[in-house]
Simulated scan of single mutants.
Amino acid sequence: MAWGFQTWDAKGKPNNYGLVPVTVVGQFAVALDQVTGSATYSVPAGHVLDYIHSPRAFFPTTKRRIITIRGGTVTLSQGGDTSYGIGSESAQAAMIVVYVRKA
């Protein structure tokens, strides 16, 4: 018996893919208030890197880190104290988990 739910686009094509498999290629720790750093990974053709920011603890901080990915390089830079949005994270002590997924 099938269960769950499905959605379709305007042309009737299913567009709910549920869990998308990914492959973790690495991880690195960042300290509280750390706003610089980088790491480089190999990226297979037809794939892109992405990340998960996983805080290890929560401490008061107004600092923010910007995480950008270009090719196989993940770079941390300082964001403004009110910088919010995609790629902007609180500068908490954290693990950055880097994974590869289909482009």
Rank of each mutant, 00 (worst) to 15 (best):
V35S: 08
H47N: 08
G18A: 13
A29Q: 14
D33L: 08
T40E: 10
S38C: 12
V25K: 01
L49R: 03
Y17D: 14
A45Y: 12
G18C: 14
G37H: 07
G26M: 07
G37Y: 01
P44G: 03
P44V: 01
H47P: 02
H47Y: 11
V30R: 13
Y51S: 11
G46K: 03
I52D: 15
A39K: 08
V48F: 12
S42L: 04
G37K: 05
H47S: 11
A39P: 12
S42Q: 05
Y41W: 03
G37W: 01
G37R: 02
P44M: 04
Y41V: 07
A45K: 03
V25P: 04
G18D: 09
S38I: 04
L32G: 15
Y51P: 11
L32V: 05
L49Y: 01
V20A: 14
I52C: 08
V20K: 14
V30D: 06
T36C: 03
V43E: 07
L19A: 13
I52F: 07
L19W: 12
P44D: 04
V25E: 03
F28I: 02
T36I: 02
T40H: 07
V35E: 06
D50Y: 09
T23G: 11
G46L: 07
H47F: 15
Y17M: 13
V48C: 10
G37T: 01
V43S: 05
P21V: 02
G18Y: 14
T36W: 01
Y51M: 00
Q27H: 07
V35H: 02
